[in-house]
């Protein structure tokens, strides 16, 4: 029973990570109807920056953590403005190619600057077992806690602030948004910045578990995709729920049914399964395209 509880809790911790990645994907999808294949590598690169701030810069973890989020935000903002803005009226293939280009560049740059050797990433949480329990640890509790805080902050931002409302308006109906004076292009870039910032949080939290290297986000991105699709790619709340479902399911299935060797294949099956059986996801809305 204890072992099972442990799997559930690890699953929730992983789920928090997947939920964050999924949310980042959903934010960009709702605003642009594009799936950002570079999301994982952007998060990985941000995590390396955090690592460098701690290891090379000698900063305290939390200072580095916050600084990295800010840097990631600016990076995401800049990428939208510089790389993607000029492509907004190009065909889908061009944009997918640009995303793949970004993926490759970040992967290569990380290896170039920081090296390909696997690095340990510190955890800000104590290593002692919490409350004398053997089936959970502080890093997992902290991961769940931080992701929940981040998600709540985002929720409050989008629901309660005029800027959040404007960003939603720009994503849902750009033309009407312009007619009330919203600078839609700026909102898009802000959305990219936020997505990159959320991704960086996920990266810094997961790096302690999976260790830091240029390819660390590949599997996590795949699970992020699966979560986003499961929850509905146009539904932020759904993506978060999807993330936690996928996290728990992955851990429990991995421990008792399939084994950990085929994790990526499980994600693949999940992705294709959702796309075939319920393309709109559990909470997404069906979109009917008119001719």
């Amino acid at each position: 029973m204890e072992a099972f509880l442990h799997q559930i809790f690890s699953g929730l911790a992983a789920g928090g990570i997947y939920a964050s990645v999924a949310l980042a994907l959903v934010m960009i999808y709702t605003a642009t109807h594009h799936i950002n294949f570079a999301q994982g590598e952007m998060a990985m690169f941000a995590t390396f920056i955090g690592w460098a701030l701690i290891e090379w810069g000698g900063l305290n973890f939390w200072v580095a953590f916050l600084l990295t989020i800010v840097i990631a935000f600016c990076g995401g903002f800049a990428i939208e403005r510089i790389v993607l803005r000029p492509l907004h009226d190009k065909p889908v293939l061009s944009i997918i190619i640009a995303f793949i280009g970004l993926l490759v560049i970040f992967n290569a740059l990380a290896g170039w600057i920081f090296g390909f050797t696997i690095k340990a990433f510190p955890s800000p949480f104590p290593t002692s077992p919490p409350f004398g329990n053997r089936f959970l640890n502080w890093h997992e509790i902290g991961t769940v806690g931080i992701t929940v805080v981040v998600l709540l902050l985002l929720f409050a931002f989008f629901r309660l602030t005029p800027l959040g409302l404007a960003m939603r308006a720009a994503a849902f109906n750009p033309e009407s948004a312009r007619l009330v004076g919203i600078r839609v292009g700026l909102m898009l870039a802000l959305g990219w910045g936020l997505a990159a910032a959320i991704g960086s949080v996920a990266g810094m939290l997961v790096a302690h578990v999976v260790y830091l290297d240029p390819n660390m986000m590949a599997g996590i991105l795949l699970y992020g995709f699966a979560s986003a699709l499961l929850g509905g790619i146009d539904n932020p709340g759904g993506a978060v729920v999807g993330g936690f479902i996928v996290g728990v399911a992955e851990n429990v299935l991995g421990a008792y049914v399939i084994g950990t060797e085929l994790k990526l294949s499980v994600a693949l099956v999940l992705i294709i399964g959702v796309l075939l059986v319920k393309p709109a996801g559990l909470f997404g809305r069906r979109i009917v395209t008119r001719v």
């Binding site: 280009g101 993926l103 490759v104 990380a110």
Partner: peptide, 22 residues
């Protein structure tokens, strides 16, 4: 140049291709 360089160049070529030689 570097072990990572080919991929950095690939990436740049990919994005450049989208812009200048579709």
């Amino acid at each position: 140049i570097s072990k990572a360089a080919p991929w950095a160049i690939y990436g740049l070529f990919l994005i450049a291709a989208v812009y200048v030689m579709p």
